[in-house]
Simulated assay, not measured.
Amino acid sequence: MIKRTSFLKVRAELQSKGTKSAKRKLKAISGRENRWMTDVNHRLSKTLVNRYGRNTLFVIEDLTDVSFDDKNLNTWNKAQNCELRSWAFYQLEQFLSYKVKETDSFVLKVDASYTSQRCPKCGRIHKLNRHHDIHEYICDACGYHSNDDRIGAMNLYELGTMYVSGDTNPRFGSRKID
């Protein structure tokens, strides 16, 4: 996102100066960036609810215990790491949750484990099948390949299907191969 990158650059310049006026400016920029991010999350949640209408099941990953430490993000570049760490996931979830109530829809939070490591065709879970550097998932068992984010979305859809079919706590099993 261009706007987020500009906030990052200005913040870095001001932090390197370290003057009293730079610190005041940092505080002002922080508020502006927070208001902008809140607006983005508000518009995104509103668009989702309006687009998919009544009686929709929105399936999202529960990112409560997901760590965004450097050791978990070392395959990504600095800009991607910063963008991921600074996104307001919880706020987006809250906005989506209260907006769906007006449309008789539902937000289902599912365990994030293996959603981007599981092949949606054969069901094999293998961490090394996801290639962060080229944003591609290639299953070494059946050969299926696609964009890694699309794979995650397909697996979230599968978990939603499991929920609609009666599984109150859908998740992927332990057929993991490291």
Score class of each variant (00 low, 15 high):
Leu63Cys: 12
Lys27Asn: 08
Tyr157His: 13
Lys3His: 08
Val107Phe: 00
Phe68Lys: 11
Glu13Lys: 15
Thr38Lys: 08
Cys119Phe: 00
Ser45Lys: 00
Gln91Arg: 11
Ala28Met: 01
Leu96Tyr: 13
Gly152Leu: 03
Leu73Ile: 13
Ser45Arg: 03
Leu92Cys: 05
Lys27Pro: 02
Asp140Tyr: 09
Asp133Arg: 14
Pro120Phe: 13
Phe95Cys: 05
Val59Lys: 01
Val110Pro: 00
Leu84Asn: 07
Tyr163His: 12
Ala153Thr: 13
Val164Arg: 01
Asn72Met: 10
Thr64Asp: 13
Phe106Pro: 00
Tyr98Phe: 08
His135Thr: 03
Arg171Asp: 06
Phe89Asn: 09
Phe172Asp: 02
Gly173Ser: 12
Asp104Gln: 08
Ala79Trp: 11
Phe106Ile: 04
Pro120Thr: 14
Lys101Ala: 08
Lys121Gln: 15
Arg85His: 07
Gly143Tyr: 04
Glu83Arg: 14
Glu83Trp: 10
Arg11Thr: 15
Asp62Ser: 13
Val40Pro: 00
Lys3Met: 09
Ile29Cys: 01
Asn41Met: 05
Leu14Phe: 02
Ile60Val: 15
Gln80Leu: 15
Leu159Lys: 01
Tyr52Met: 00
Ser146Gln: 15
Thr38Cys: 03
Arg124Ala: 14
Lys71Gly: 10
Asn147Asp: 15
Lys121Asn: 11
Met37Val: 02
Thr168Ala: 14
Met162Ile: 05
Leu63Tyr: 14
Ser30Val: 02
Met162Asp: 13
Trp87Ser: 06
Thr56Lys: 00
His126Ala: 10
Ser16Asp: 02
Ser174Gln: 14
Glu33Leu: 05
Leu92Ser: 07
Lys25Gln: 04
Ser86Thr: 06
Asp149Leu: 04
Ser86Val: 02
Glu33His: 09
Asn129Glu: 05
Leu44Cys: 08
His42Gly: 03
Cys139Ser: 11
Leu73Arg: 09
His145Cys: 08
Ala22Ile: 06
